[in-house]
Design a protein around this nucleic acid. Structure first.
Length: 264
DNA sequence: AGCTCTGTTATCTG
DNA sequence: ACAGATAACAGAGC
């Protein structure tokens, strides 16, 4: 489920815990997504620590606690975060629950493809600072995009857009949306783009990222109704541009939805 | 019963 | 070196 804006949305679900002290922690230690944690270490590290800041970057989340504690969470395919009343029953597929003064903060992940990891350091970890600009940031410029393209000319466009080192937060539906909005066939190679087409893709990356942040990230409301978004999920969808049937196929190893005559 | 899936990683092949 | 295909992870939904 979670791409850029979904991750931002879920990260905020833990905001009710800001300013509160950790009084207990439960870990599903058998779960793959918690394999780097130990109950004992977590209890020691979180002793007396309080949550004070929530950071997100692409599909990554970082929760800052006092006492040099940082909890990194990646939601994988099915991860979600919840805030519940203190003492609520654990739910199916809960993997980690932090008990605070009056809230329980839960990381729930049915498929366990996500990841929870602890860091101990006085300030924001170096690797976090070194992450590339997010696609909605002003530092994500046409020149930066062009430099990414320059090194990947023989790469398929669809899988290129899914590269987190270049486009942090972009996932499968966003990549399809970007190519649909820029009217480019997802089967094209990066090196085949004209400079005008490259600029269109760049602009759509920015527009889709900002549009998702302005809708999904706020309250999980859908992006604008004229996006591909609402039509892409099931076979039989109709392209809002051409009113013709959308195509579905596996491109770059991922299910891809596009509009054959609109995108070329 | 069998197939799919908004993610990532390792491995094999060309 | 690069790029694509495939499998693996583990569960839910259709």
């Amino acid at each position: 489920m979670p791409e850029l804006a979904e991750v931002a949305y879920y990260s905020k679900q833990w905001a009710p815990g800001i300013g509160q002290c950790v009084s207990g922690i439960w870990i599903n230690i058998a779960a793959r997504c918690c394999r780097s944690l130990s109950q004992q270490t977590a209890c020691r590290i979180f002793e007396g620590a309080s949550l004070f800041k929530i950071l997100t970057h692409g599909k990554r989340m970082l929760f800052a606690f006092s006492d040099n504690v940082w909890l990194e969470i990646h939601l994988g395919m099915t991860g979600r975060l919840y805030s519940r009343e203190r003492g609520s029953d654990r739910e199916k597929h809960d993997q980690l629950v932090l008990s605070l003064a009056n809230k329980d903060l839960a990381f729930n992940d049915s498929r366990q493809f996500g990841k929870a990891k602890l860091h101990e350091c006085p300030d924001v970890p170096d690797w976090w600072r070194a992450l590339p600009p997010q696609p909605m940031d002003s530092a994500f410029t046409p020149e930066l995009f062009a430099s990414y393209c320059a090194g990947r000319k023989r790469k398929g466009l669809k899988s290129f857009l899914l590269h987190q080192e270049h486009f942090p937060g972009i996932g499968n539906w966003m990549a399809d949306e970007i190519l649909w909005q820029s009217a480019i066939d997802p089967r094209r190679l990066v090196g085949s783009l004209s400079s005008d087409e490259g600029l269109r893709v760049y602009q759509s990356i920015v527009d889709v990222s900002r549009g998702a942040m302005a809708s999904i990230a706020i309250d999980y409301r859908n992006p604008p109704a004229d996006w591909l978004f609402s039509r892409r999920w099931k076979p039989g969808g109709i392209c809002p541009k051409t009113h013709e049937a959308l195509a579905r196929d596996t491109i770059g190893g991922r299910t891809t939805c596009w509009s054959p005559t609109w995108q070329n």
